[in-house]
């Protein structure tokens, strides 16, 4: 656990891939919580522009990011020359997670690093072990 974990919220302004109600609820909860945080309009735009601000966001240790798929976020930062620390980054995925889940994780002082590393591939359902009820 570290109290120094920072929070970053991505508003995905230039696309409609993150459900509006999820991103709004997450931002609203952050605004109501009283906690300090950084918010950016669109990490994709920043990465495409090689925005040096991404470096500022990765500097300074552990970070929790509310955005989209961890694999996408990892390589967006990397493409802009600002790789995220593998052991110090937790990504919350607003494309598929519920807003309550995202907010709880963001405000939880414990960091659960989850950046993918290596060539992970999910097995097909047929390859999964059979579970009996």
């Amino acid at each position: 656990m570290t109290m120094a974990t920072r929070i970053l919220y991505c508003n995905c302004t230039y696309a409609q891939v993150v459900p509006k109600e999820v991103k709004e609820a997450v931002l609203k909860s952050l605004c109501e919580s009283g906690v300090a945080f950084d918010a950016v309009a669109d990490l994709c735009e920043m990465s495409a522009r090689q925005d040096p601000a991404l470096k500022r966001l990765t500097d300074g240790g552990a970070i929790k990011i509310a955005a989209c798929y961890p694999r996408a976020v990892k390589w967006l930062f990397s493409a802009a020359g600002a790789p995220l620390p593998i052991e110090g980054t937790e990504i919350l995925n607003m494309r598929i997670q519920k807003s309550e889940e995202v907010v709880t994780s963001l405000l939880d002082p414990n960091l659960k690093p989850n950046l993918p590393s290596g060539k992970a591939t999910q097995p097909t359902p047929a390859e999964l072990p059979v579970t009996t009820a």
Partner: peptide, 26 residues
């Protein structure tokens, strides 16, 4: 926050609690 983010700006909310990204050339 919402109005500024929708216009494409990055916004830091700095309060009495918590940490935010350090300053740079911006």
């Amino acid at each position: 926050m919402t109005a500024l983010l929708e216009k494409g700006f990055s916004v830091t909310r700095a309060g009495r609690e918590g940490q935010v990204a350090p300053a740079d050339r911006s």
